[in-house]
Amino acid sequence: MSDTVLVVGGGPAGLSAAAGISAAGFKAVLVEKEDRLGGAPILSGYAKLVPSGEWAKDAIGRMVEQVEGDANIQVHKSTKVTKLDGDAGNFTATLSNGDTVQVGSVVLATGFTHFDSINKPEWGFGTFPDVLTTTQMEQMVGSGKITCPSDGRVPERVAILLCVGSRDRQIGREWCSKICCTVSANLAMEIKELSPETEVFIYYMDIRTFGLYEDKFYWKSQEEFKVKYVKARIAEVTASDDGRLLVKGEDTLVKRPIVIPFDIVVHAIGMDPNEDNPEIAETFGVGLEKHGYIDKAETYTNTCGTTRKGIYSCGAAYGPETIDDSIAQGKAAGLRAVADLSRA
């Protein structure tokens, strides 16, 4: 009988799962393909997290410290799982560093991949230096100064375009990425805090700041920071002769075409399935749902399950998810995996 759970992925969900397994008195082997733990918030340099408002490096940093300081958690960085043999209760995992580990169950906390804005070339990313993604803008917020990458001037106007890589059949993304509306409202407030003279406009189809994010982010951004929300799906981002960007579209509510000058355009990029999911599905023998995320087992009595017995999942591996919910699901998946060990 193994007393160990294999946790794949060292982001918020995986860190939470590993810490939970250890707290329950069992051992975890945490495998992370990058050379650092922390997942997207750390690797992509997020600024302040939604909804806590704490800097990612502090909040997620604490999770990393907790796991790295735990003798019951063995961490393998820059490592992948290349092979999984055996069955529920008695798996043997082969790692890319040559190690093999005996585990009773597996938690896939393999997360997501940020949408690559290159796939929407009409919105100017990769063509114009002042077109950025939300992650790049968060990095700029982290640096403490809001300026145009092209020439360093302070932007008079910033446009945030929602649903970039989400809700778009043209590029096969038929899901809502769930958190970009809230992240964008939060980002707009961070921009206004650092650069009060900059006007921030958010171009939206719908605003989906669900639950308690409604007043804390959407309303607050309007009422306290005077962020302007414009109902328009942008058709194209081009440049004008004076070097500013031109945002073209139809203002849905005015029923008129618009061509408005901006200094920075931010893509609120969505969450794609992890680009390694086909490989993960093959290695672990789990199914993917139709969009390419890890497929869920029947959820009511087999919480955190996948299509294979003994293998569990959580967080953004299942589909677009918030950091807080990923952490909660990671904890649930870790303990669900531990329950298998107890029975074995």
């Binding site: 005077k226 005015v254 008129r256 075409p257 618009i258 408005i260």
Partner: peptide
Amino acid sequence: RTLCDYDEHFEKTIQKYGGGENVHR
């Protein structure tokens, strides 16, 4: 028919008149 610019100061102008204070909400 294209709209080519916003006048973001106009909202502030209207907010100075009694009754217009909450228009930004």
